[in-house]
Amino acid sequence: MRGVASPRLARRASAWRRDLAARLRHAEARWSLVLEGPLATGETAARTFAVRRADGAAAVLKLAPPGQALEAEATALAAFAGRGAARLLAADLPAGALLIERLSPGTALRHLAARDDDAATLAAAGVMAALRRPPPPGAVLAEAAGWVRALDRALEAPGPLPRPMLARAARLMRELAAGAPPPVLLHGDLHAGNILRDGAAGWRAVDPKGLIGDPAFEAAAFLRDPPGPAARAARRVALLAEATGLPRERIAAWGYAGAALAAAWAVEDGSDPARWCAAAEAMAPALA
């Protein structure tokens, strides 16, 4: 999920992309890498490449605009230390470069979810449990509950989103924050596309946002993507609660609020929020 990019940040990202070839050559030389080719990219400015290290080990090179988002990702990966997530091998934050362990075969969990959603949900729960740990000492990371500001912006401005959904989600987020347990380090975007198969190690995460907050927040991204029928959403909540030991009601509330947040960010980004509104609607019965 993303917030609004200012014109200044948009210009910086555009300039960064123009220099991508030079940045790639710099990283190859710095870490003695052999480039194998680009990997699939999402909607962000970041670009990833399959590479080999000098010893022949497979790795992923991630190039992204330097700044707080990349620093938070590097902090999270370093703190996870390979337990539940791909390992951070090296970082050059001023250059916007991360060298990350390549997971093999790297098949996304969403492929399992398409044929056995219960199994995928339990796999996601296992990753959530493996990642759970206290925030790293001294780390400066955003608080997940602070994302309520996106809902406030949506409520204050005219737009296509249902006002009752936004108001309910904002209220839930504030209630969740008020009664939150001690915060943990969060991946922050643990949907089924960011959980990959890794041989005997099972499933591990990639592309963390790097946040701190309520442990139950970690379920939100998985619950909303892809949206499904209400019965499926309720079963996912029940399975996640049983497997992680987290309160069912907090998982459900974060699932609803997270879907509404995704809808608000979609509108800010100029994309269609329909799928996220559908996810919130499917989550609503689980709040009862």
Rank of each mutant, 00 (worst) to 15 (best):
C277M: 00
E156W: 03
A169N: 04
W265A: 15
A108G: 14
A69W: 10
A123T: 08
G202M: 02
A76K: 06
G159N: 10
R12Q: 07
A260Q: 06
K62T: 07
R235C: 01
L99Y: 06
T44A: 13
R47M: 14
R102A: 01
L20M: 11
V184T: 13
A205D: 08
T107S: 14
A85D: 12
G146M: 12
S14N: 06
E36Q: 07
L89W: 13
E281W: 00
A91M: 13
R248D: 05
D116C: 06
D272Y: 02
F222G: 00
A264W: 04
F217I: 08
A108F: 12
A288R: 07
A216G: 00
T41Y: 07
V267W: 07
G210H: 05
L196W: 03
A260H: 01
A139D: 12
A145Y: 04
S14T: 12
A13H: 08
R17N: 15
K62V: 09
A154T: 05
G199W: 10
A177S: 03
M173T: 08
V60R: 03
A15P: 13
R224W: 03
A257K: 00
L211S: 11
L112K: 06
G199V: 03
D269S: 15
D19Y: 11
R153T: 06
E218W: 04
L141T: 08
G202H: 01
T48N: 11
A178S: 00
H26F: 15
A154W: 02
P273S: 03
T121P: 09
A90K: 10
R11S: 12
A257P: 05
L161E: 01
P181L: 06
L109M: 15
A263T: 03
M128F: 11
L93W: 02
